[in-house]
Design a protein around this nucleic acid. Structure first.
Length: 143
DNA sequence: GCCAACGTTGGC
DNA sequence: GCCAACGTTGGC
């Protein structure tokens, strides 16, 4: 899962312990969230300045309606989604750990084992699948 | 249903 | 700050 550290960083998640991953307004990303199961591990990636995979989280609650879409005052308000007919969903994410060594995007690009990562092919997709071998490789490298 | 225009994201 | 990639919108 990607996030802008200026908006919500791994340290923010660490401080809160757990948080609702709201504001996802992209169908592909939403579909990926709906596939998540409680306990699934999640890599957290910072986008923007110094893009890097920075930490680990896990799914604390499976997909449920993102109510910020119903709130006219929310920056994530979307009239397409109503309580009766929900379009957007979110999951709850729980902090697990920060990587001992954040893995910069620049470095990911040079690693053969990680060359097929969705992160490199669809940099704009905010919730994306990670292959098992990719995940294990990153854990071993940066854990 | 297609496609141009536009806005947003994210890497550099 | 720029630009490429991509998703969404709206006119036809």
């Amino acid at each position: 899962m990607k996030t802008e550290p200026d908006t919500f960083s791994i340290d923010d998640l660490k401080g809160l312990g757990q948080e609702q991953w709201d504001g996802v307004r992209n169908f592909q990303a939403r579909n990926n969230m709906q596939k998540m199961k409680k306990g699934d591990l999640v890599l957290i990636h910072h986008s923007g300045k110094d893009p890097a995979i920075v930490g680990l989280a896990k799914v604390a609650k499976e997909a449920y309606p993102d109510f910020t879409a119903f709130d006219k005052n929310s920056r994530y308000y979307d009239p397409k989604s109503t309580p009766d007919k929900t379009v957007w969903y979110m999951v709850d994410v729980e902090f697990v750990e920060k990587l001992n060594r954040p893995l910069p995007l620049k470095e990911i690009k040079t690693i053969t084992e990680l060359k097929d990562m969705v992160l490199l092919k669809a940099p704009r997709l905010s919730v994306q699948p990670v292959a098992k071998n990719e995940f294990e490789f990153i854990q071993k490298l940066a854990g």
